[in-house]
Structure formats: structure tokens, C-alpha cells
Computed example of a mutant assay.
Amino acid sequence: MFPAKYAPALFGLILSGLMSLLVSGISTLRAVGLVDGFAGLWISAWLSAWLVAFPVVLVVAPLTRRAVARLTANQP
């Protein structure tokens, strides 16, 4: 179990990992089709994408939370 102070980073790690896994899989499938070695191509694309996605999520998530807070009404 992780301490609560790591929740934002852990959220970013999981979110960026899952999203980059899905997007890289779809992109790889569309680019090369279901060829021999597809899994290796996908994993390679995923790891490259995740290296970019994780830090981006850590920077963009707080900005997005603030934007959503401004765009939504506070209900009593």
C-alpha cells in the first residue's frame, strides 16, 4: 500500500500507462496490421509513448482539474 501523498503520481502513472497502451495498440494495428511480431512492435511503441505520457499527465492533470473546477458550478 502506498501513502496517500503519492496518490496524484500513482494516478498519473496508471492513467498514462493505460491510455498509452490502448492508443499505441490501435495505432500500431492500423499502421502494420496483425503481422508476425505485432506484440513486440506494440510494446516498443507503448514504452516510447509512456515515457512521454507520464510526465505530460503529471503536468497537465492539475491544469485540467483547475479548468474543470472553473467550468462547473458549485452546488450547495
Rank of each mutant, 00 (worst) to 15 (best):
F2P: 06
P3N: 03
A4I: 05
A4F: 06
Y6F: 14
A7C: 05
A7N: 11
P8R: 02
P8H: 04
F11L: 13
F11E: 13
G12W: 02
L13M: 10
I14L: 15
S16V: 03
G17C: 09
G17K: 03
L18H: 14
S20Q: 08
S20Y: 07
L22R: 12
S24C: 12
G25Q: 08
G25H: 07
I26Y: 14
T28P: 11
R30M: 15
A31G: 05
A31H: 11
V32A: 13
V32T: 12
V32R: 09
G33R: 04
L34Y: 12
L34F: 14
V35F: 05
D36Q: 08
W42M: 05
I43G: 04
A45G: 03
L47N: 09
L47R: 06
L51Y: 01
L51Q: 07
V56Y: 01
V56Q: 01
V57D: 05
V57G: 02
L58V: 00
V60F: 09
V60A: 13
V60T: 06
V60D: 02
A61Y: 03
P62D: 03
L63N: 04
R70N: 12
R70A: 14
L71G: 14
T72V: 10
T72K: 08
N74W: 07
N74P: 01
P76N: 10
